[in-house]
């Protein structure tokens, strides 16, 4: 016999978090009069792979900053060597869920080691020699007109064929 109460409990616990609504209410409670606006595409771009992944250079982009004096004090675009994978990254000030989890395991948000495993197995051509940290900021102008073009330039310097964006 179906336990209706139990069924409802399960359903209620596994919903998709309404992040936009939560963010709006959270900002409102903090006294911000203007609601947060996300930059978004009217038409989302798409490029099919130009060659097999097994021949492609894969680049990695994170929103975590390097755990260096400069990375901790200035949020901007950084490029860091992919290997060896960093043991720590600077994640303070980002909107991750710090009351239930932590970012002490860089592997939980920066997939360098798994990409090296896939590379060794021949699943990708190679992991790009450096990965990139991008700042999350209120300024859409800063992101769209400065950071994004600069990031694209760096990816092209790396001769990256594809990029994985893994935000926290």
């Amino acid at each position: 016999m179906l336990n209706i109460q139990g069924f409802e409990t399960i359903v209620n616990k596994t919903y998709d978090v309404p992040y936009m609504e939560r963010t709006r209410l959270y900002y409102e409670a903090q006294g911000y009069s203007e609601p947060y606006l996300w930059a978004h595409f009217a038409t989302t771009p798409f490029s099919a792979l130009q060659k097999p992944l097994s021949e492609s250079t894969v680049s990695l982009i994170t929103t975590a900053m390097p755990d260096t004096e400069q990375g901790r004090s200035e949020r901007k675009l950084y490029s860091s060597l992919s290997t060896p994978a960093p043991k720590t990254m600077y994640t303070l000030g980002l909107s991750w869920h710090d009351t239930v989890t932590h970012t002490r395991d860089t592997g939980s948000f920066l997939p360098i080691e798994p990409l090296l495993v896939v590379q060794d197995e021949g699943g990708i051509g190679s992991l790009a020699p450096r990965f990139h940290s991008v700042p999350t900021a209120y300024s859409q102008r800063q992101t769209l007109e400065e950071d994004a073009p600069e990031l694209l330039e760096r990816l092209q310097e790396d001769q990256a064929d594809v990029a994985l964006l893994v935000p926290l």
């Binding site: 991750w96 989890t101 592997g107 997939p111 495993v117 935000p167 926290l168």
Partner: peptide, 21 residues
């Protein structure tokens, strides 16, 4: 997953590899 762990549970290497794949 909670924000901060897009690859899955911390220190779960199998899950992190699975998500990457």
């Amino acid at each position: 997953f909670p924000l901060g762990n897009p690859l899955g549970n911390p220190f779960d290497r199998d899950m992190q590899l699975s998500h990457t794949s």
